[in-house]
Design a protein around this nucleic acid. Sequence first.
DNA 1: CTGTTAGCGCATTCAC
DNA 2: GTGAATGCGCTAACAG
Lengths: 347, 347
Amino acid sequence: MLTDSGRVEVQEKENTQPVTLLDVAREAGVSPSTVSRILNGTAKVSPDKRKAVETAIATMKFEPNQLAQGLKSGRSMTIGIVVQDIASPFFDETLHGVDDGLKDTGYASVIVSGHWNAAEEAARIKLLLARKVDGIILLSGRIEDKTVLEFSKHRPIVATGRALHSATAIGFKLDNEYGAFLATRHLIELGHRRIAFVSGPVNNSDAMERLAGYRRALQESGIEYEEELVAEGNFHEASGLMAIHHLIETQRQFTAVFAANDLTAYGVRLGLYRKGIRVPEDISLIGFDDLPSSTYTTPPLTTIHQPLYDMGLLATRTLLALISGDEIVNQLPPLELIARETTRRLR
Amino acid sequence: MLTDSGRVEVQEKENTQPVTLLDVAREAGVSPSTVSRILNGTAKVSPDKRKAVETAIATMKFEPNQLAQGLKSGRSMTIGIVVQDIASPFFDETLHGVDDGLKDTGYASVIVSGHWNAAEEAARIKLLLARKVDGIILLSGRIEDKTVLEFSKHRPIVATGRALHSATAIGFKLDNEYGAFLATRHLIELGHRRIAFVSGPVNNSDAMERLAGYRRALQESGIEYEEELVAEGNFHEASGLMAIHHLIETQRQFTAVFAANDLTAYGVRLGLYRKGIRVPEDISLIGFDDLPSSTYTTPPLTTIHQPLYDMGLLATRTLLALISGDEIVNQLPPLELIARETTRRLR
DNA sequence: CTGTTAGCGCATTCAC
DNA sequence: GTGAATGCGCTAACAG
């Protein structure tokens, strides 16, 4: 569009363009390196120059461009987190621990989701690597250990739900078998002998370990394992609901149900309610995970507490140690039974 | 340490150092700019060179350094998300929508938490800005609108839970008042006239709007508002539990309870259970939010569905449109009543 | 103590 | 079409 020559076009430039380190240097009458030194405490600077620079930084509201810092230093001060499902209470707890572990460290986190899909997970990790994250926390997931090890050649990786012990890849695994053993033994100690189990998906190692723990507890008490008392679920509520309906409709006899995780237990609980079966008066019910919400179900759910928060915290600290070369010592607390109100002694 | 001269020290360098665009260019026998052009489709390149470059990229497993790209282009291809609590089902749902909105866009997200603290929120936003995110999604929060507007001069911001309409800052607000009105009216239509309300914190605008909706519904039905039937909660389960105990112990008479959100309703439900009061036989209960877990409470919770997922999706699309300068048209679906099994007609 | 210089890896003029 | 040159903003030698 033509405008009269000589007319000044007033451009309302709302977008304040960022002030750079060079701007600060000019303003303070020093060299850029001096500003950098003050920023990073790399070397001593005379008090007067320091003063000048600091006021310049304050008045100009200078914030160093982290992209540039990262490009230069090779460290982006961000770590990547791979979860499988962003909206899952299970990962939430762990993320909470991660969040706290990162507090005041200067690190931020890029969270991506693998959606329980090995190919997608690998793609996400590549994405994180391309973004030059300084390390990766991999929460559960389906990619193979050797793939993880391969990726860890680029950046350190701390994983949960798998055992890894290389110099750049460490894994933490909770003892699912033991937890399931605890849960089942609790029911047995309450006098139950016919204990149904709603399992997780058969292609999931956590799920299979929990099944193993259930079987061991039965065996140690001389109770025969009956396949008919086991129904497969998928760790979600709906599967618990369906499984318990199936168990009831096929006339299985049992006085207690062990659900492979809390969500499944919620579904079982609802299924029993629909059939007019009371918990714990008629049937005892125990879960696994101890999600925060399990404190407030009606009635509050007896379950196995997994230190998910601690695992997130530990994973984060371990990763930071791996990055900085520090030693790591922390220990994960053991799984434990939380006896609430869905289990009771068999009369 | 001294070693014999001439002896070759085999250094096991596990850390594969990344291959750069320059490496690719050399390998393919072209100039770096040609590689760049192919990467970005910026200009036409002869088929043979393109071929050579592409094979070089594949064999060398080249991944462009996003930090460098970002520094150069000024766009980091990441957006910042400010939540208040990483482990909250409320934010989860919205994040799920954000996650889907970002799918296949090339954008990744860095998630930070403001912990319901204005100062921390501001600090986090500054951090995101320093990281050169291309835009920010602010989910709820306590910082003032004018602060948001100020920040939006640097990067576009889309916020939820507040109304904003500038060129670089857009806000979406759900109609809390209307939702609360719906909930209360539902109870009234079922014949209830003495309806207790467990509110959210008084310093929270969502909470106050829900209270207003409750009052309007009462008023439109000619039911007098009684302050004694309102107990303050804080949106968490424990507060629902305490509130209902208080209501019962102070001998308030009511046949239904409206809890300001689902978590509070869970607490109320448990409190009623503890007193031997059945839901919905003795008391009707309604929540607000429609968290995923409310489908599987026992009994399933009647509640007000908020389109949290859609809001996350819409916020993301809007932000991307703001970034790219596109037009945005999407509309948020209205709040609606989900009648499940915790409410019933008063006999 | 401090300024000058030279890149980090890439995209983008500008010439050819 | 393609290569050479330049710079994004910052840090880290290197001299003084």
